[in-house]
Amino acid sequence: MNKTKIGLLLSLALMLGLTSCGEQKSNTKLILNEVLIENGSNFQDDYGVHSAWIEVFNKSYTSADLAGYQLRMSNQQGDTVTYSIPKGDVLTLVKPRQHALFWADGQPNRGTFHTNFIMNGSTDTWVGLYDSGKKLIDQIVISANTLQANQSYARISDASEEWEVKGAEESKYVTPSTNNKTLSGNAKMEKFQSHDSAGVGMSITAMGVVFFGLLVLYISFRFIGKASVAMSRRRAMKSKDITCKEEAKEKKLGEAPGEVFAAIAMAMHESQNMHDVEDTVLTITRVKRSYSPWSSKIYTLRETPKK
């Protein structure tokens, strides 16, 4: 197969890979997470003012920068206000699994996190988050009069698909700048503590997985080993002009253990005074002149001098 064909094959594989990636869910790191429209006595901004707010969540495990992103809001069709998040403020870098809170107070001169629009709960409210390439990455519509004062519309837990009204019941509380569902401990660990306090379940499961993993590896290499022996037997049959498979199997062609090779090497070493035919053969190899520090002689000749 020539290089062009290999290149074409690789390109095709890459294209298929990219296509299949496209079918998956969006891998946007930053999403809208919670919105509060009418702030009567809820969270105050740094000026002590109760304003509406929009919470953005970084759902990834790496930092994500909001600089250059846009928050857009509309209370009626064709009346969209855009707030471009300024670049140059280090605080726009949202840490992994953390939140950024924007005050929709129409006072952008109060800082990066104060938008140039305000929100009105008496009509439908649309909020959109756009990336720096002006591509819509998340949006939410809050119907008119859905929220009472001090209630927010939020994802049930951070980054979950479903939204709910928070602040209407005691168990569903408004959570500006923090997790939508308060983490009260390590859920996984508690599950183990309550269901498997002796650790038997964990041990059985984990040992099962360890055995399964190594069993699969064993089976794979059993087949690969058999194929390898068969190939070396075919080569040996060819070199010895043997065509009968039974005869080759009987003579164990291609299955010589390492000890045999070691014995042959030692016998040659002893009988031929360390050298075989190479003493009388002059080998001429084409020398590539293309220079690279990675293949340079001066960098590779690092063998310790022999005594």
């Binding site: 306090s197 002796a198 038997v200 041990s203 040992m207 055995f211 059993r222 690969i224």
Partner: peptide
């Protein structure tokens, strides 16, 4: 290991040490 892949299972069996200690530590 490649020449005698069934030895992989011996390597798996010895991991009982991990989970034996895990259970005792829980206790």
């Amino acid at each position: 290991l490649i020449s005698n892949p069934k030895l992989m299972l011996v390597g798996a069996a010895a991991q009982f040490g991990i989970f034996g200690a895990y259970m005792i530590a829980l206790a």
